[in-house]
Design a protein around this nucleic acid. Structure first.
Lengths: 183, 183, 183, 183
DNA sequence: CTCTAATCGAGACGGTACGTCGCGTCTTACG
DNA sequence: CGTAAGACGCGACGTACCGTCTCGATTAGAG
C-alpha cells in the first residue's frame, strides 16, 4: 500500500479522535474532518465512503485494543479480573469513550463491538451450556450490557463516581456471569 | 384546547406511526410527515420543534401502554408473568417496535423508557436491597437490557424465532431478576 | 357607517403613521400593524386588502393636506410663495415624510401625488402653452421633481440643511417654472 | 478566477435580463432565477447575497453602457445631441428599460445611476456655477428627472409615442440645461 | 330598551419563499 | 500531468409572513 495513503488514513483517524473529544459525532462534518486532518475535502472520499466508515475504522482499533486487554484475563472463574482491566482501560481514555458511547457514534460502536465479541465467542472451543439461550443472544446481551454499564459510569459526576473495582464487580455480576456461567 | 390542535396532533402521530412501518426514522423528513398527515409543513412546527419531539410523544404513549400491561403483573416472586405479557404486547405490534428500536429512533425511545421506568421505580416504597449497585444504574440496566432483548428478538427470522414464553423467560433471568431480587 | 368601523380604521391609520416613523414601510408587517393598532389580525383585512391599500389611504390624506396648503398660492407669477408653503409644511412633519419618500412607500406615494396633481391640473381652465410637451408629462415631471427635491432635502444632515426659503427657490426654478410657464 | 464562476455569473445576469422582460422584478423569485439560469438554488447565494445585488450588477453594466453612449457627446452648448443618443439607446432596449424603471427595480437602478452620474460629475474639472444649488442636488435632480422622463416615455402607447428627437429635446430643456448651464 | 345582526379578538391553518447547511460529484487551476 | 481546492446540484432544514378560516364574545343601532 502506498505510504501516502497510510499517512492520510492515519491523519484522518487522528483528526476524528481529536474532534470527538470536543463535539458529538453527529455534529462533526466531513469538511471539518478534512480540515482538521490537513487534507483536501475530496481526498476524504478517496479513503472512506462516509464519516461513518471512518468511525467504524476508528472503533475497530479502539475496541480491538480494549478486548486485547480484557479478554486474555477472561475465564469462568476469574472474569472479575477481566472486568477490572476493562474499566482501567476505559478510565484512561474517558473523553474518547464518552464520545463513542453517546450520540450518533453509539450504534456504530455497538455493532463493531458485537461483531468482534461474536468472533471471539466463536473461537471458544467448548459447546456453550445449553440453557435455551442462543449463543447469539448471549453475545448480544453481554456486549450491550457491558457498553451500557460503561456508558452509565462515564455519565456519572466525576466526583462521586464509583471506583473501578466496584463498577467492575457490578459489570461482572450483571452482564458477564449470567451469560458465561451456567446461569 | 382548540379542537383543531388536537386533531392535527393526532394526525401527525398517526402519520409518524404509519411511516415508521415503512422506513427508518432517520429517513423520514418533516416534509414527508406533514404530507402524510395531510397537514401544512409549517403547521408541524407549531406543534413540535422537531421530528424527534414528535417521536418522543409517540414513544411516551407507546411505552406507557406497554408498561401499563406489564407492570401490574410485576412482583418479586412472579415477574415471569409480566415478561410474558410484555412480549405478547410487543409481538402484536412487531413492525412498529422494530422501527422504534432500530436506527435513529432507538435513543429517544430508550430515554423515554428509562424515564418512565425510573418514575415507576421511585414509586416503589421499600428501600432497595443494598448490594452496592445504585438504583439509577439498576433501572438503566434493566431497561436497556430489556430493550436489547426485545430488539434482538424482533430482529430474528420470523420462522425460527423463539416463542414468547421462552424469550420472556430469558428476559426474566437476564435482566429482571438480577436487578429486582437480592442479586 | 358603523361607529366601530370608523374607530378601527382610524386606529389602523394612526398605527401605520407611528410605525412609519420607526421603520421603513417594507419592514412593517400586517401583524405588527394590527398589534400596534390594538386590533385583531383578521380585522385588518376586513378594512384593507393589503398594507399597501392602507398606505394609499394615509398618503391620500397627507397629500391632500399638503396640496391644500400649497396650491391656493400657486400662480404663474408667484409660485415661489407656494413652494415656501410646501416646504414649511413638510418641515413640520419631517419624520413622516422621510418615511413616505424612502423605501417601499415611495412608489405608492408618488402615484397618489401624481393622481391628485393631475386632477388639479385638469381643473385649470386655460389651454396650456403648447411647446410640444404633453400636459401629462408636464404634471408627471413637476410632481416627480418636487418629490425628488423634497426627498433630497429630507436626506440631508439636519445641521447643514438648506433653509426652507433657499430650497423652495430651487424647487421653483427647477421644477415649477419650467412646467408652468412658457418654458 | 475560476472559469465556472464567470460562467455562472453570466448565466445569472442573462437569466435576470430575460425574466425582467416578462415579469416585474418583485415577482421574480430567487428560485425562478436559478432555474432560468440552469443553476442550483444555493449556487445563487454563492455569487450574490440577494436578487437585489444581482440587479445592481446588471444595472451597473446597463447604465455604464448607456452613459458610455451619451456622455461623450455632452457639452454645454450641444447637450441636445447627447440626449438624442440616450433615447436612441433606450429605444433599442425598450422592454428591459421598462422593467428597470418600474416596480421594485427602480430604486436600485436609480441609486446606481446617481452614483455613476456623481462619479462623472466629479471628473469635470471646472467649478460649477454657483447659483446656490449644491452639486449633489444638481446631480440627483438631473438624474432623477432624466429617469422620470425616460420612464414616462416608455410608458406611453407605442403608437402615439413621441419621436426620439422630440422627447430628447424635452429632456434637454427640462432636466439637462437647468442643471448644467447657468440656470 | 331590547334583540339581532354586524363587528370584533384571537389564533390555527395551508401555503410559499426565504436563506443556510451539509452532502457527494466533478471541474479546474496549479505545482 | 496528477492532485488539492473548491464550485456546483441537490434537497432538507427551520423561519417568517401571507391571507383564509372558524370560533365565541361584544356591541351597536333598528324596532
Amino acid at each position: 500500500m502506498d505510504a501516502r495513503q497510510a499517512r492520510t488514513r492515519a491523519k484522518l483517524l487522528e483528526a476524528l479522535l481529536s474532534l470527538l473529544e470536543r463535539e458529538p459525532f453527529e455534529a462533526i462534518t466531513v469538511r471539518a474532518l478534512a480540515a482538521a486532518a490537513g487534507v483536501g475535502y475530496a481526498t476524504f472520499f478517496r479513503h472512506y465512503p462516509s464519516k461513518e466508515a471512518l468511525l467504524d475504522d476508528l472503533a475497530a482499533d479502539e475496541i480491538a485494543e480494549l478486548l486485547g486487554r480484557a479478554m486474555p484475563l477472561m475465564s469462568v472463574k476469574d472474569s472479575g479480573r477481566a472486568c477490572v482491566a476493562l474499566f482501567d482501560f476505559v478510565a484512561r481514555r474517558k473523553a474518547l469513550w464518552r464520545a463513542l458511547l453517546t450520540g450518533g457514534a453509539a450504534p456504530i460502536l455497538r455493532a463493531q463491538f458485537i461483531d468482534q465479541a461474536r468472533a471471539i465467542a466463536a473461537g471458544f472451543a467448548g459447546p456453550p451450556p445449553d440453557d435455551g439461550c442462543p449463543v447469539d443472544l448471549r453475545v448480544t446481551f453481554a456486549t450491550s450490557a457491558t457498553l451500557e454499564i460503561i456508558a452509565w459510569w462515564l455519565g456519572q459526576d466525576e466526583a462521586e463516581a464509583l471506583p473501578t473495582e466496584r463498577i467492575a464487580a457490578i459489570l461482572n455480576r450483571l452482564a458477564i456471569t449470567p451469560t458465561v456461567g451456567q446461569g
